[in-house]
Every structure is written in structure tokens, then in C-alpha cells.
Nucleic acid binder design. Structure first.
Lengths: 135, 135
DNA sequence: GATAGTGGTTACCCAAAGGATACCGGTATC
DNA sequence: GATACCGGTATCCTTTGGGTAACCACTATC
């Protein structure tokens, strides 16, 4: 008799798995959601956005904006009459549907910062415990 | 006359930006959240988890599990007496705090799939929309 | 004893993501 | 004239993601 297997999981979660991975395909990477967040306060121009999303390079910002536009999350307007040409990025209606996602990440990040601040709440480190107990 | 700048943004969002990016640093990448989701149904063993998170290679799964364990999101138990050695991964208490994040991504991914399915939406006047909403 | 299968890890290597820097044409400011 | 802003693009480079395959300890089968 080899190994007693734990519970076989209900397959309820496999549907959720697909949706989550769909989302990650679109929103994955370091910058997409920060950019959306940056635009949440209203339309912005390129350099303005780059200052807001600190650390992003022009190349990355340009690339990510293209992808977000292709997915209908934001729109790009060019004022050709302005001099020099002015480019404005606006969060599309559809982009607003991401606010719950961003809010969840914001809340978690906030509590996580608080979480790692407090000192060791438990006497024993959980890592080596299991092996010691069973050894 | 230079360029008319749009609204200067309220700096309210820069705080949110930090939290969101903290979260993405920890949870970013293709696999972390799917793995958490896979463990949400109860403790699982390595191969079991690999079958659940379809497409992940053993190497990636091993690496991601290490990182998640280091961040206290899951625990790893080794039953040294079992033969062959059995390794079980369990979602930690703290890992449960990610459920809102996963739920938000799940909901968005689901509606997005529906969203890209329907053809050209509505060039129609907004009055019709209001009637629909009230219907 | 030879072979094959399993759970899990590791070494080797390639492709993609992402960063640094330079540059463009035009305008405005010092 | 020198510098800076604007909206990017092109080039080069490093880091990471991720695939392949070998490996270990053990067990089962022929």
C-alpha cells in the first residue's frame, strides 16, 4: 500500500481556474494594472503618465499602452493641431470594470505591508517543523 | 503658448499605486495565483497539484511553491516515513486572505470572456440603454 | 536481476520580458 | 547658444520565465 492520498478535490475550482488565467493573460506583467490605476484619475498625456507610474521606461510604457488599447481598456487621442503633437490617453468605459481587481490588490498589498511589519508572532519557524516532528 | 495640460491628478492614487505594486511583486507571474487557487480546495500533493494547474512544468511548480512558502502563503509538510516520501502542500491561514483577489480576477475573466464574444455592441443612442437598464 | 513507473529535484539551455541609453524633430525658456 | 520638454523609436544588454531531460530513492513486475 503506497501512500494514502488526501481528499480528491471537487472540480468546482477548475472553472474558476480558467477565468483567472484568462485575466492574467491580459493583465499580467509588471505594468498593466499600475497604468490603469494611473489613468483612473482622468486622462493623461504620455510623460505625465510616465511620471505617475514611477520606474517605467518610455519603451515599456509605449508597448503596454498599445496592448491595453488593443484590448479596449483605454483610448488614445492625438491632437495633431497642437504643437508639438499632443497625445492623450483615456481610460475607456471598459477599463473601469477593472477597478474591483485593482481595489482587491490595493487592499491586500496594504494589509500585507502591515503584516510583514509586526515581529515574530509565533515561537517556532514553520519551515523545518514538519520534518522534525516526523523524523 | 505651450500646451494646455489636462487636469493635474490628485495624488490620492499614488498611495494605492504602491500597494498594488507590492502585491504584484509577490503575486506576479503566470502561476502564483492559479497555484493558490488549486490549493483552495484542500491540501494537495505535488503531482496532484501539477495536474490541477494544467500546463505548468514540474520545475516551475517547484520554484513557485518555494516562493509561496517563503512568503508564508502555504506550508510544506514532508512525511518522511511514507514510502516514497510524501510531500503535501497546504494553503496557510494567510493564503486565504488572497481569496478576494482571486475572486476579483475570476469575476473579471468570466465577464471578459462574455464581453469579447458579443459582436459589435451598440452604436445606438444612450436612451435605449437606459430603458434596458430599467427593464 | 532487468525493467519500468512514481514523486520530486536539479542542471542545462533558449526565448521572452524588461532595463539603459541614445536619438529624432520641433518648440519654448534662460 | 544651451538646455529642457514632448512623444515616442531603435539598439543593445541583463534578468527572468520556462522547456527538456537527467537524476534519486523506492516499489512493482516479469
Amino acid at each position: 500500500m503506497p501512500i494514502p492520498q488526501p481528499l480528491p478535490s471537487h472540480h468546482e475550482c477548475t472553472g474558476a481556474m480558467r477565468s483567472v488565467r484568462d485575466s492574467l493573460d491580459l493583465l499580467g506583467g509588471k505594468w498593466k494594472l499600475p497604468i490603469i490605476l494611473g489613468l483612473s484619475g482622468g486622462p493623461k498625456r504620455f510623460k505625465q503618465l510616465q511620471r505617475e507610474v514611477t520606474g517605467i521606461t518610455a519603451k515599456m510604457l509605449s508597448k503596454e499602452l498599445k496592448e491595453l488599447e488593443m484590448n479596449g481598456l483605454l483610448t488614445r487621442q492625438v491632437q495633431a493641431d497642437a504643437v508639438p503633437v499632443a497625445v492623450t490617453y483615456t481610460l475607456a468605459e471598459y477599463g473601469h470594470t477593472l477597478f474591483p481587481v485593482i481595489e482587491a490588490l490595493h487592499a491586500w498589498g496594504q494589509q500585507h505591508r502591515a503584516h510583514i511589519m509586526r515581529p515574530a508572532p509565533l515561537p517556532a519557524p514553520p519551515t523545518a517543523v514538519a520534518e522534525e516532528v516526523l523524523a
